[in-house]
Amino acid sequence: IFFRSSIMPVTVAYWSIRGLGAPLRMMVMFAGQPLQAVNYDVTEKPEGGFDRDVWFNAKPPLKAGNPLMNLPYIIDGDVVVAQTNACFSYLGRKLGLWGSTEAEVVDCEQLLCELMDLRNQMVGFAYSPAGPEAAAALLKRVSAEGGILQKFELWLERAVTQRQASGVHLVGNKPTAPDFHLWEMLEQYTACAAFYSLPSPIVAYPRLQAFYIGFAVLPQNQKYFESSLSKLPFNNKMAGYGAVPGGQKWAPGQEYGFDPNGGMF
């Protein structure tokens, strides 16, 4: 476990969407570390479809530094990290947003794996034809008894009642990497429910509601929420849901309505 914050910027690279990039960007800004956000923007092809060459042309030289290169990736000085959960754990250790004991480290690792399951279910829905019936089925599945959201509710209940935690954090009483990914996924799921006029998937889960509200209002998160990065759409332009910030599909030729660019934050 190490803590190596500095004034040098950390690069977080991803598509020009929130997706997996959002919680990583959020972590860096929460810690007060300068962030270099590299956003690869998918564009429309004149003949129809979408052009992702901005990333695929950039990828080969990056693979020279890390053969596992993919999005998201992190560059921190001479360290190049790929693979999502490796990015979370690296930033967690670097920024002091990780477990302080072996037991807490194990908790962080377990939670990040479970969160990837929650994320993958949303991605499977969003990059399909989507629609209200599919959304209702998704929300029912993740919020049902024994579903993923109930698992997080029970985790927080145990943390509060047995470990004297505040309920604003998943591991102990301090922010760790899984907090940022859980918050982003709750944001995506509640926004999806609102878009299709469906009940919130956390309406029956008071611990998750308290976490969702309490984590968002932490002062260290406000720089991120005030930035253009928090206004990006959840998903890419080919998605059936969330291709623009309001949740709609991308309409050919439409104006952005958001700033897809990265930069220093």
Rank of each mutant, 00 (worst) to 15 (best):
P9C: 06
W15K: 03
W15T: 00
G21T: 05
G21Y: 09
M26L: 09
L35V: 08
V38F: 02
D41L: 09
T43V: 14
G49F: 07
R52M: 03
W55Q: 03
N57S: 10
N57W: 06
A58F: 13
K59I: 06
P60L: 07
P60V: 02
P61W: 14
P67I: 08
V80L: 09
V80W: 00
V81C: 00
Q83F: 06
A86Q: 06
Y90F: 11
T101M: 11
D107I: 00
E109Q: 15
L111M: 12
C113D: 14
D117N: 12
F125C: 05
P129T: 15
A130T: 13
A130L: 12
A136E: 15
L138H: 08
K151W: 12
K151F: 11
E157T: 11
V160I: 15
R163A: 14
A165S: 15
H169I: 04
V171M: 02
V171G: 01
T176R: 02
P178N: 02
M185N: 14
M185T: 01
Q188S: 10
Y189D: 03
A191E: 05
C192S: 10
F195Q: 06
L198E: 02
P199T: 03
I202S: 01
V203R: 14
Y212K: 08
P219R: 12
E226W: 06
L229C: 05
S230N: 08
K231F: 01
F234M: 10
F234P: 00
M238T: 11
G240L: 11
P245S: 05
P245K: 02
G246H: 07
G246S: 10
Q248H: 11
G253S: 02
G257D: 10
